[in-house]
């Protein structure tokens, strides 16, 4: 349980981090290290150099940004998960994150674990990845002195696999803000609270003044190689009153032809069945929360 030897660098800014990364193909960026250090201890990862971005203060922020796509909350890569968990702007403008983050690990790992680290690690069961895909977040990165970005729905292509270009460092993420009567729901099933989820589900709903779904986003995580958006269900449910039977029917149909992961703990059939149930609960929670809002803000 001791890591193999490596060189250690602590760059002053992200471009220096990119240069170090480009110079050594076996170098790895370390953010919170709550996955990477364990992998190194088990020698499942043996980087030749660790590039520690923890002290690049410019990468720690939570702020509102308004651009041509609309309003968004931008979060810097090394922002600690525990900071997002307690942040007032997040609670108000990206409530799904406030709901999802307490499910990540334990308080002691959220104290070190970062938003960017989890997004770059791309674990199929990661609550942050599910949230990013569900809310159409945009992943930002830096490479060769230039900035780039990718929609979360194109960023994830397999378990622990992303389209982040070689030599690039993930620098932040933008979550679009939904205004109006918005509610969220998040559920997951695991062996013990805060273990890796077998299945997780997230939903965000905006209700119109008629009580019908003006916008709806539903995502399922941990069941497949990377979290999925249930677009066909969203399309069916948009404009409707979201009554439970219709929601379940739409979810069952949307999940009918996914290929769920299968392991000792949860069979593929179990994951599919539970995904329908958790997603239905998430949609019901989101609808109820949205109804509780008396007026649009």
């Amino acid at each position: 349980m001791k890591a193999a030897p490596f060189e250690y660098s602590r760059p002053a800014d992200i471009d220096e981090a990119c240069a170090l990364l480009a110079a050594d193909e076996n170098a790895r960026v370390i953010a919170g290290g709550q996955t990477l250090v364990a992998m190194m201890a088990m020698r499942l990862a043996r980087p030749t150099r660790l590039i520690d971005i923890n002290r690049i203060a410019a990468l720690a922020y939570i702020r509102q940004e308004n651009n041509k796509e609309g309003e968004a909350v931008a979060i810097g890569a090394i922002t600690r998960q525990c900071v997002v968990e307690r942040d007032a702007l997040i609670a108000k403008s990206v409530p799904l994150l406030a709901r999802a983050i307490p499910n990540i690990g334990h308080a002691a790992t959220r104290a070190r674990g970062t938003v960017g680290g989890s997004l770059a690690n791309a674990d199929p069961a990661a609550e942050l990845v599910l949230s990013a895909i569900t809310l159409d977040a945009v992943i930002e990165y830096r490479a060769d002195g230039e900035s780039g970005e990718s929609p979360a729905r194109e960023f994830y292509i397999g378990p622990m696999i992303t389209t982040l270009p070689a030599g690039a460092v993930l620098s932040g993420v933008r979550f679009p803000i939904w205004r109006g009567k918005v509610g969220v729901g998040f559920h997951e099933v695991n062996a013990r609270r805060s273990d890796f989820a077998f299945v997780s589900a997230a939903a965000q709903v905006e209700l119109g003044d008629d009580g019908k779904a003006k916008r709806i986003a539903i995502g399922v995580g941990a069941a497949t190689d990377f979290p999925l958006r249930l677009e066909s269900a969203e399309q069916q449910l948009k404009g409707g009153a979201l009554d439970d039977a219709k929601v379940r029917a739409a979810l069952r149909e949307a999940l009918a032809d996914i290929e769920p992961l299968e392991d000792l703990h949860a069979s593929a059939d179990y994951r599919r069945r539970v995904a329908v149930d958790l997603a239905a609960r998430a949609v019901a929670d989101a609808r109820q929360a949205a109804q509780g809002k008396s007026h649009a803000y």
């Binding site: 370390i30 709550q34 250090v37 364990a38 923890n54 525990c82 002691a108 790992t109 104290a111 070190r112």
Partner: peptide, 19 residues
């Protein structure tokens, strides 16, 4: 292995001393 790191409880096995 929990210790207080700048007052916050963290796992001391999940960080390197140089950090």
């Amino acid at each position: 292995c929990t210790v207080l790191f700048d007052g916050v409880a963290v796992r001391s096995c999940l960080m390197f001393a140089v950090q």
